[in-house]
């Protein structure tokens, strides 16, 4: 057994892993620390304070950031819901649809947004909206987000569905359940962990997007990333660090939820 351990481990790999974690976390931790800085200047540390959090909620720019937060979260919510519904339907068609000619093409189409560089999608979407005469605004962001969130929602759902034997639905149908009933009562509950994971992934991806949003957003419609970018261009200010820290907490909370959900599922 000890010989086996020897074969597996390489000296230095643990150090590399720790280095990897340091690289991944140090910028985030430092920004979190400095968000509690009492100083107006971002370079000088003058002790702990919550003033920049107060500034985010009640300061001169609070209106802008509140509106941006409302836009960001509402867009993420709708886009994730829509794309998860579309992806669930597509996954059922592909995994439970038997053999068919367009299977590979359908899979390719669904994963297309993953393969096209984001800036290209952004340009294409801008040109498209301009061509059909859509005025840029809230709706253009929403539509673009729904489209590129589909593959992110799709992958975990398909993975989950491939792990469910079809005997369950067949048994239900043998007991005179309609296809729709078998889907709703049997398949859907079993797919739920995949659907939740897909939804959360789509939600985060939508919340995260800057490039496409920046191209298709219209007058006065900002999301959090575009609002932060606009602010950061003029130099990093402490209130941006406070917003970043809050978004960090939201993101971590969401991963933790999805982690717990999947953990609970695998233990039952």
């Amino acid at each position: 057994m000890s010989a086996r351990g020897d074969v597996r481990t390489y000296s230095g790999f643990r150090a590399m892993t720790l280095l990897c974690l340091v690289v991944l976390y140090s910028p985030l931790i430092i920004v979190t620390i400095y968000s509690f800085n009492a100083s107006r200047s971002i370079t000088v540390w003058e002790g702990l304070s919550l003033q920049w959090y107060a500034d985010v909620f009640w300061g001169p720019e609070s209106g802008k950031f509140k509106q941006a937060a409302v836009n960001s979260f509402s867009i993420a919510l709708i886009a994730a819901t829509m794309s998860t519904a579309i992806a669930t339907s597509a996954a059922t068609g592909i995994v439970r649809g038997g053999r068919f000619r367009l299977r590979t093409a359908s899979l390719g189409l669904i994963s297309l947004p993953l393969m096209v560089p984001e800036i290209v999608t952004a340009v294409a979407t801008l040109i498209f909206f301009n061509f059909i005469g859509f005025t840029r605004g809230y709706l253009t962001i929403l539509v673009a987000h729904i489209a590129f969130c589909i593959p992110f929602a799709y992958l975990p759902i398909q993975a989950r569905m491939q792990g469910i034997e079809d005997t369950f639905e067949q048994a239900a149908q043998d007991l005179y359940a309609t296809k729709a009933q078998a889907f709703r009562r049997v398949l859907l509950p079993m797919m739920m962990p995949g659907i939740i994971a897909g939804f959360l992934l789509a939600f985060i991806v939508s919340l995260d997007d800057f490039i496409i949003t920046n191209f298709v957003k219209g007058a006065g419609v900002e999301t959090l990333p575009t609002a932060i970018f606009g602010s950061v261009k003029q130099g990093i200010k402490p209130n941006i660090m406070a917003i970043s820290t809050m978004l960090l907490v939201v993101s971590i909370a969401m991963v933790t939820i999805s982690y717990v959900v999947s953990k609970k599922d695998s233990s039952t």
Binding site: Q67, V70, N71, I78, I132, G133, T135, G137, L139
Partner: peptide, 29 residues
């Protein structure tokens, strides 16, 4: 398409409360 887009956008915005409703009007600078 224009009018459809605007109506739909307004509908979405209203249902979300994203649009701050105001009787007096708006200005986009």
């Amino acid at each position: 398409m224009h009018i459809f887009a605007k109506t739909a956008a307004t509908a979405v915005a209203l249902t979300l409360g994203a649009a701050s409703a105001s009787a007096e009007g708006k200005l986009v600078i």
